[in-house]
């Protein structure tokens, strides 16, 4: 194999900036009144992908079978790639000279806007698979709607991510069915995972002023509109998996979207941000 040529790596950031400069005009990006909500909302979408991607990547080299190990790493990779797109747009909207990397590596826990569900520890495979399914079912509906966003910049990222997330949802619903309708042991673990995660599952559907502002601007769907579709997918898969939907509220643990997190997020950030905190500006 020929050795790599002696040339400089393309500057990904400069590439993204130049591409951004040539984008079709998107009035939402420069809308001053909309900026605080748009930025916050983009951080929510980006942070969900970032934190779940980081969590899932923790399985790399540890999954029970090789195929699952590879699948988990692939899903994590997709999510981190999507993070790059969302947080780049967030940084552009914010317009304070920060980059996607600055947002990922230099914000403190209180500034993160992900839902609590995605920061929960991986637990066993039952928890990991169930968390992924509950999130994928939402993520798929969200991106489907965002692909028709009135913001062309949001729509193009969503259209790209949607193709990947369709595979994520296919895999996670498949696994929920196989493990739920599997052995007594796998069934019990999946039901326990569902019972434990259920009170976290609804946070994404609880709209606040930020969600309402981006919905009014035509950027995002109204969250209550997504809920019936999510419920249909969840009901179909749980039924096929012989699992029982918990008879309790699913929106108990909220606040992550507003920056109030569980203790677990701090540990994730300690690992994820260590290098940039200890060696600011380090590159490789």
């Amino acid at each position: 194999m020929p050795s790599l040529p002696d040339a400089e790596m393309p500057d990904a950031l400069a590439l993204a900036e130049r591409a951004a400069a040539e984008q079709v005009h998107d009035p939402h990006v420069a809308d001053v009144d909309l900026k605080p909500a748009f930025f916050d909302w983009l951080c929510r979408i980006g942070d969900n992908a970032l934190i779940l991607g980081h969590r899932v990547s923790e399985w790399c080299g540890h999954a029970p079978v090789l195929e699952e190990d590879i699948a988990l790493a692939n899903v994590a990779l997709d999510l981190i790639g999507q993070t790059q797109m969302w947080l780049s747009l967030a940084a552009e909207v914010e317009d304070k000279g920060r980059t996607a990397d600055d947002l990922a590596y230099l914000r403190d826990a209180m500034k993160f806007r992900n839902i609590k569900l995605v920061e929960l520890p991986n637990g066993d495979m039952g928890v990991t698979v169930m968390r992924q399914f509950l999130f994928d079912a939402y993520h798929f509906e969200l991106l489907t709607a965002l692909a028709r966003s009135e913001s062309p910049r949001v729509a193009e990222i969503a259209a790209k991510a949607l193709k990947e997330v369709a595979y994520h949802l296919e895999r996670s619903s498949d696994l929920v069915i196989r493990l739920g309708d599997g052995t007594a042991e796998s069934h019990a673990r999946m039901q326990a995972a569902l019972d434990a995660l259920w009170p976290y599952a609804g946070e994404v559907f609880v709209a606040d002023a930020v969600d309402e502002a981006v919905a009014r601007a035509g950027i995002a769907p109204a969250l209550p509109d997504l809920l019936p579709k999510w419920e249909r997918t969840v009901a179909e898969v749980l039924d096929e998996a012989t699992l029982t939907r918990p008879d309790r509220r699913f929106d108990v643990h909220v606040g992550g979207k507003q920056g109030r997190h569980t203790e677990h997020l701090g540990y994730i950030l300690a690992e994820m941000q260590f290098l940039q905190r200890a060696y600011p500006g380090a590159e490789w």
């Binding site: 489907t144 193709k163 369709a166 949802l169 296919e170 619903s173 498949d174 579709k229 898969v237």
Partner: peptide, 12 residues
């Protein structure tokens, strides 16, 4: 390519 809910129905 999978298409989410449609794909789910097809698989089931």
């Amino acid at each position: 390519a999978p298409d989410g809910r449609g794909g789910l129905a097809a698989r089931l």
